[in-house]
């Protein structure tokens, strides 16, 4: 019976590739949020030391779900080709640390807030936006995850909080910095920022 159901599902999957496409990103975001919540609500992790462990675990979780290369390219936009290949690599690495520290810092400040996954909106053939809301004590914070499909996997390439796109916000900053400075100087700024972030 089980086999029959599985076989039937497989046929359905093959018959409706589009339906499958649209179902996956939402599930992926849900899975990500569930994993994060599990870490946040772990009763064993309390106090300052607990929070540190939480941050590390959340960073590990986001590593699987975020596409940092895509994030970097979109954040640098036209400036991406001003970076030499090894500079691009270093940029991705530094930018990733910065985002992970920021993201885990932000997320671990939440504890008993409810998260509602609202809906999924197609942005283009390969990109999708999954809309979620965090219900805090005093307000509702809309958080949208933008995902892109690569080799059959959906990965997050942008997070939009209250209308503010992470990529867009950093892109503006990078553009202003690179208008007067070299890619190397931007990398130096990032090195300092990330170094400080890890020390504290």
């Amino acid at each position: 019976m089980k086999k029959g159901v599985a076989g039937f599902s497989l046929v359905l999957l093959l018959m409706s590739p589009l339906a499958v496409h649209s179902a996956v990103p939402l599930d992926m975001v849900k899975e990500h949020i569930d994993k994060v919540l599990e870490v946040l609500r772990d009763p064993a992790l309390k106090g300052e030391s607990g929070r540190k462990v939480k941050k590390e675990r959340i960073q590990a979780i986001s590593e699987e779900k975020f596409d940092f290369t895509e994030l970097s390219k979109r954040s640098l936009a036209q400036n991406w080709d001003k970076f030499k290949p090894d500079q691009q690599k270093e940029f991705i690495r530094l930018y990733k640390s910065l985002l992970e520290v920021t993201y885990s810092e932000k997320v671990t400040s939440y504890t008993d807030e409810k998260i509602v996954i609202k809906k999924e909106v197609n942005l283009s053939g390969k990109t999708v936006e999954v809309q979620t809301t965090i219900l805090t004590k005093t307000s509702e914070v809309p958080i949208y995850y933008r995902l892109i499909e690569k080799d059959g996997n959906w990965k997050v390439y942008d997070v939009v909080i209250e209308g503010v796109s992470l990529v867009s916000n950093y892109r503006t900053q990078f553009r202003e910095i690179l208008a007067g400075k070299t890619p190397e100087a931007l990398l130096e700024i990032l090195r300092n920022k990330v170094g400080k972030g890890q020390a504290s």
Binding site: V101, G163, V164, Q173, E176
Partner: peptide
């Protein structure tokens, strides 16, 4: 803690805040 987190994430807090303000108001 919100403002502190914002500053920690920004490379240029002034530019970052302006960008966040414009985007947020556009959505509103």
């Amino acid at each position: 803690g919100d403002y502190e987190a914002f500053k920690k994430a920004a490379l240029d807090p002034y530019v970052s805040m302006r960008s966040a303000y414009v985007q947020n108001r556009k959505k509103a």
